[in-house]
């Protein structure tokens, strides 16, 4: 399967719930996320390994990763 055909995960961020603590950004092992102002944003979706650490350690119910 070529790189282009690789299925990307769907990272759902709720900006109304995100408080900008940056825990998800710091713990992401492949640097997928970044802070934009006081809310998290996706920087490099293709690098996501679906490890779910951002979801597991988000205290605010603000981020989830779906297949």
């Amino acid at each position: 399967m070529g790189e282009a055909a690789k299925k990307l995960p769907n990272i759902v961020i709720n900006p109304k719930l995100c408080k900008g603590c940056s825990i998800c950004v710091d713990f992401c092992p492949t640097n997928v996320l970044e802070m934009r102002g006081t809310c998290v944003a996706v920087k490099d979706l293709a690098a996501c390994t679906r490890c779910q650490l951002c979801d597991l350690r988000c205290p605010d119910f603000a981020i989830q990763v779906f297949d």
Binding site: K16, Q52, P59, F61
Partner: peptide, 25 residues
């Protein structure tokens, strides 16, 4: 995970009062 937290939450009560980075969440 991914887990449907809304099944057990009262979604209209969110966001919670805990500070950014608080471990309680």
């Amino acid at each position: 995970v991914p887990f449907d937290y809304n099944k057990y939450l009262r979604p209209n009560k969110l966001p919670h009062i805990w500070c950014p980075g608080c471990g309680h969440g």
